[in-house]
């Protein structure tokens, strides 16, 4: 069974020194800025937008996107939350249980909003399937969109991202490692390691 593409290693885990950097801190910042512009263009403004990050690194990305969106649009800070999917996973029986992380829904709720799910890496698509289920229990958004920092391919479900920071062709044996300032306490970076 493919390891699902969410959560990843805990904060502060060391990166594989043999890996190569595919996105630098500047490139990540530019990618997020472009995603923010795309979201605004697609949504024709920031009205009704709610950003929900998928723990753990998706939450930091969602927070950053919200700041950029508010800055570009010159509006109030956008509502940001986090959506934990642990209880909705389809592979619970295949690994030791882990404690779920917090689900935080902004006060405005998600009903009739345009919810943008934010995650760091899109891989099998199973995390997003679980997130859609989790979201359905919380309300009925008008639309749900997906923004990811990296799309590494190998989908196992009919799911695609609306906004992608970088498309990254990978093999199954490779590992994509994302490290973020706030979450990991190191400079932003995306690296690939392993593979044949």
């Amino acid at each position: 069974m493919t390891r699902p593409d969410s959560s990843g290693p805990p904060a502060g885990s060391p990166v594989d020194p043999h890996g190569r950097t595919v996105l630098s801190s500047n490139e990540i910042a530019r990618g997020l800025r472009r995603i923010a512009h795309e979201i605004l263009e697609h949504n024709k403004g920031a009205a009704d937008l709610v950003l929900l990050g998928i723990p753990s690194r998706g939450v930091e990305l969602a927070e950053r996107l919200a700041l950029i969106l508010a800055e570009v649009e010159g509006c109030d800070p956008l509502p940001v939350g986090s959506l934990d999917i642990t209880m909705h996973r389809d592979d619970l029986r295949h690994q030791p249980t882990r404690s779920p992380m917090r689900t935080v829904i902004p006060d405005c709720g998600v009903d009739d909003k345009i919810v943008v799910l934010v995650d760091d890496v899109l891989y099998s698509g199973r995390t997003i399937r679980a997130a859609l289920d989790a979201l359905a229990d919380l309300g009925r958004p008008r639309a749900v969109r997906l923004a990811v920092l990296v799309d590494r391919g190998h989908r196992e479900l009919p799911i695609r991202a609306d906004h992608v920071g970088k498309n990254l062709p990978t093999s199954h044996s490779e590992k994509v490692q994302v490290r973020l300032r706030g979450h990991d306490g190191v400079e932003d970076v995306v690296r690939i390691s392993g593979g044949n």
Binding site: M87, L92, R93, H94, Q95, P96, T97
Partner: peptide
């Protein structure tokens, strides 16, 4: 219940 039943056997 989650920790005792949901994980791997």
């Amino acid at each position: 219940l989650y920790h005792l039943l949901a994980g791997e056997e």
